[in-house]
Computed example of a mutant assay.
Amino acid sequence: MGKEINLDSQDMKKAIDQLPSQIAEAYKMGDYIRVDKPVDKIVIIGMGGSAIAGDILQSYIANVPVTVIRDYNIPDWIDEKTLVFASSYSGNTEETISAYREARKKKALIVVITSGGRLLKLAQDEKTQIVLIPKFMQPRNAVAYMFFPMLSALENAKLLKSQDTAVRQTINALKKEGYEKIAKDLLEKNYNKIPIIYSSNKFSSIAYRWKTQFNENAKVMAFSHAFPELDHNAIMGFEHLIGHFHVIFLKSDLDHKRIQKRMDITEKLIRRKTTVTSLNIKGENYLSQLFTAIHIGDLTTYFLALRYRIDPSPVDYIEELKKEMGPYL
Rank of each mutant, 00 (worst) to 15 (best):
S21F: 09
I259K: 02
T212K: 06
G297H: 02
I235M: 07
L151Y: 04
V167A: 10
L250N: 01
R70H: 11
Q138V: 12
A103P: 04
E95G: 14
V247T: 14
V143L: 15
G2M: 14
S90V: 13
N233V: 05
E324Q: 00
N233I: 09
S224E: 11
K322N: 13
A24T: 13
Q163L: 07
P65Q: 11
T301Q: 07
P134Q: 10
Y328C: 02
L241N: 09
G46W: 10
F291A: 06
R258P: 02
S199H: 05
G117S: 14
S152D: 04
Q213D: 12
V66M: 10
V39F: 03
M1G: 13
D17G: 01
M1Y: 00
Q289T: 01
A26R: 03
G178A: 03
L120T: 12
Q169D: 15
E102C: 02
E239C: 06
I310P: 00
P65F: 07
L329K: 13
K219Y: 08
A62P: 02
N233G: 06
P312F: 11
I97Q: 10
N156E: 09
F303S: 01
W77D: 15
L57T: 09
D316I: 15
P38T: 14
I182S: 01
Y308I: 02
R258W: 11
K81G: 10
I171E: 08
V64S: 02
S152E: 13
N63L: 07
I69G: 05
I52R: 00
S278M: 00
G283V: 00
I33K: 04
V84A: 07
T274E: 06
T275I: 09
A166S: 14
K81W: 03
T165Y: 10
I23A: 09
A166G: 01
T82V: 13
K106A: 10
K261L: 11
E155H: 05
I281N: 01
P139C: 15
I5V: 13
F227A: 12
T128M: 03
I69L: 11
V167S: 09
L279Q: 01
L269M: 10
K121A: 15
L132P: 06
F303H: 06
I16S: 04
A183Y: 00
T93M: 13
A142N: 12
K211G: 01
L187R: 09
E80I: 10
L7Q: 11
Y60S: 04
F238C: 08
T212S: 10
R271N: 01
A305F: 03
V66I: 14
I242W: 04
S59A: 15
E4T: 13
D17P: 02
R258M: 08
I33S: 12
Q163S: 15
E155W: 05
E239T: 13
T93G: 08
D8N: 06
M263F: 03
R307C: 02
D316Q: 14
K189F: 00
G283L: 00
G30L: 07
K121V: 13
R271P: 02
A108L: 11
L57G: 12
F223V: 05
I52H: 03
L306K: 10
I78A: 08
N172T: 10
P20F: 14
I69N: 08
F147K: 06
L122T: 07
L290R: 01
T93H: 09
S98R: 07
Y286S: 05
H246W: 03
